[in-house]
Amino acid sequence: MARQERAERTRELVVRAAAARFDTTGFAATSLSDIVETAKVSKGALYFHFESKEKLAEAVATQSGAGWRDVLRAARAPGGPVLQALIDMTHDVAQRIHHDVVFRAGLRLCDERWPGEDRFPSPYPSWKRALTLLLARSERRGELLPGLDVRQTARMLTATTAGIETLSRKDRGWLTTPVVAAAWETLLPALVPAERVAAFRPCGRVPLVPRQPTAPDRELRAGGHHRARPATLG
């Protein structure tokens, strides 16, 4: 069991190291040697888990996609106004982009292309469908302005999310709670009746706690300060 746990931790360490490199330099400019150096593992340990850089990128994209599905599942949970759940969901996405390098790298990989292949589909079409469904449910509950075009609103919110995410690649300040809340303070009067605006919390219902570093994250950070002995296969 100890060997299996060590192997799983090594694999996660390699995935997060790859994500860190993809996030900063992109897929094409990242080599397996770069990832080995960042993870502080042996090449044998990397190849034990991944046969190529492409397989590593697939692992990053898959894990990032799982994070998006977690966000959408949380939004389906009952409790309170539907539009407030949507607001909370946008804060959740911003926090994940800000603090989770794998989630963030998965988004960058969506922009990477190879001749004749579109390997990593963007999550934004699914995001737009989820926003459309939530807004339609909010409309049925009478939360929105009469006659509001739900589909167009979902398109606008998707564009806002994608725009903030793109801007955050140069400046993480775009992902902070005050910035996301300010966007909602601007949007809410255009979405709900004036007498209902005060019923919603642009900053989200529950203050989000940044994701705590995992053991692989701590090892990656430590590796930046000293040369650790490379991990072996297991």
Rank of each mutant, 00 (worst) to 15 (best):
L188S: 01
Q95I: 06
R119V: 03
K43C: 04
V209C: 00
K40C: 13
D217K: 01
V60D: 03
H91Y: 02
R11T: 07
R172Q: 08
W127E: 01
L208T: 07
A198R: 14
T38H: 00
S126H: 15
P115W: 08
R172E: 12
G223Y: 09
A29C: 08
L220N: 10
R196E: 10
K128E: 15
P210A: 00
G204R: 08
E165H: 03
G147H: 10
V192Q: 07
R108I: 12
L175Y: 03
R229I: 12
H91E: 12
K53T: 10
P81N: 09
F27K: 07
G223H: 02
A222G: 15
V14Y: 06
P193G: 05
E143A: 01
Q152P: 00
K128A: 11
A94N: 02
L233Y: 03
G65V: 01
A61C: 08
H226I: 08
L13K: 00
E139M: 06
D92H: 14
S52R: 06
C203I: 05
L167K: 13
A57G: 04
R221E: 15
R3P: 01
R76N: 01
A18I: 05
D100H: 05
G234T: 11
R11M: 00
A39F: 07
R16A: 02
L133T: 10
A199R: 07
R140Q: 00
A39I: 06
K43S: 13
R119K: 13
G163T: 03
A222L: 15
A194H: 06
R9E: 00
R205I: 04
V179N: 04
A77Q: 12
P213N: 01
G224T: 13
H49L: 09
V192S: 05
V209Y: 08
L175C: 02
A7E: 14
L56I: 01
S31F: 02
R229H: 13
V36I: 15
S42N: 10
E195L: 05
V150A: 10
V82E: 05
I87P: 11
E112K: 07
L131K: 00
V36E: 13
D23G: 09
P210K: 08
A59L: 04
P230R: 09
W184A: 04
L131P: 03
M1V: 01
D92M: 11
L56R: 10
S33F: 06
Q4L: 11
A19P: 03
E195G: 08
P123W: 14
E51G: 15
A18R: 06
A94L: 04
L144A: 06
L144C: 10
G116M: 09
T166Y: 07
G223N: 04
K55S: 03
G204E: 09
A130H: 13
F48K: 08
A228Y: 10
A228G: 11
A19S: 07
S122T: 11
P178A: 02
L72H: 00
A29Q: 15
T161M: 12
V150W: 02
A85I: 05
A85F: 09
T166S: 13
L175R: 08
T24I: 04
E8L: 12
T177N: 11
P213R: 11
A85C: 00
T10H: 12
L188R: 12
P146K: 07
Y124W: 14
G80M: 00
G204C: 07
P81Y: 03
R151I: 05
V150I: 12
E58V: 02
P146I: 01
P146S: 06
T90C: 07
E139T: 02
L83C: 02
G147M: 00
E54Q: 13
P230N: 09
I87W: 13
H98D: 15
P213V: 03
